[in-house]
């Protein structure tokens, strides 16, 4: 049974909604339950990073799907690969040759989305793995600035939708994921250096971890799973 485009879109919303829920205060209960498997989720920082990773993954998959639709439409000559239902008509937007690529460069917007969310995921994963590293603040700043730049691009694409007279549900999903990820970077930036970041609480663990690393001559598996953050 073939799934229509709107049903397929729901699969992209699952990680995004899950991530947004995890990032919100409502997600604390769920995070507590999941913390037995992923201990990092017991902290606000861990919940935010986990939620952002889930949102960015959803943004990445929907961007990839957008690129697939773009390519398929060009392969089959503009045939409808995307659901058209009134104002929500992704075919008219993704298939519009005047607006569906970056001006001057000609790269499809789906590729840009994939690159942006891949970069977000890298920033998030590396911060999650080493939250006390010297480069964490730089990563958060890069994520925040990239997010702001992306929001500028989103305004341009919303203008494109206004010009075309249709809204693209796939593009809007990617935009939502981008805005939520940007919000997450702002939140992490304000959290960094404060007690919510957990540096003070983990400083003893850090020194013991460093001692163990020096004794073993490099990386050693953490004693506690919470040290993996």
């Amino acid at each position: 049974m073939a799934l229509d485009a709107n049903t397929q879109l729901m699969f992209h919303w699952i990680p995004i909604v899950f991530g947004m829920f995890l990032m919100s205060p409502l997600g604390e209960g769920l995070a507590r339950q999941l913390s037995s498997k992923w201990p990092s989720l017991s902290t606000t920082r861990g919940r935010t990073l986990g939620g952002m990773l889930s949102v960015a993954l959803g943004g990445f998959t929907v961007s990839a799907h957008t690129l697939w639709i773009h390519n398929k439409a060009n392969e089959m000559g503009g045939a409808s690969f995307c659901s058209a239902d009134g104002i929500w008509d992704c075919s008219s937007v993704i298939g519009n040759s005047d607006w569906n690529t970056i001006p001057f460069i000609g790269l499809p917007w789906g590729v840009v989305g994939m690159l942006a969310f891949a970069l977000f995921m890298w920033l998030i994963i590396s911060v999650a793995k080493e939250p006390t590293a010297s480069w964490v603040l730089m990563h958060l700043k890069v994520g925040t600035n990239l997010g702001i730049l992306g929001i500028g691009m989103i305004f341009y694409l919303i203008y494109a939708e206004y010009d075309i007279g249709k809204l693209c549900q796939y593009c809007t999903t990617a935009h939502v994921a981008h805005v939520v990820s940007t919000f997450g970077f702002f939140r992490l930036g304000s959290m960094y250096g404060s007690s919510a970041w957990g540096i003070g609480a983990s400083s003893d663990d850090d020194s013991s971890s460093r001692d163990r690393k020096s004794k073993r001559g490099g990386y050693v598996a953490p004693k506690l799973a919470s040290e993996e953050e």
Partner: peptide
């Protein structure tokens, strides 16, 4: 130096995962 390598390892691990996915 070891500590710096470990920090870099987190970035390299993340880069590897994201690159494979991408």
């Amino acid at each position: 130096r070891r500590n710096i390598s470990n920090e870099a390892g987190a970035r390299a691990d993340g880069m590897l995962m994201v690159s494979v996915l991408f």
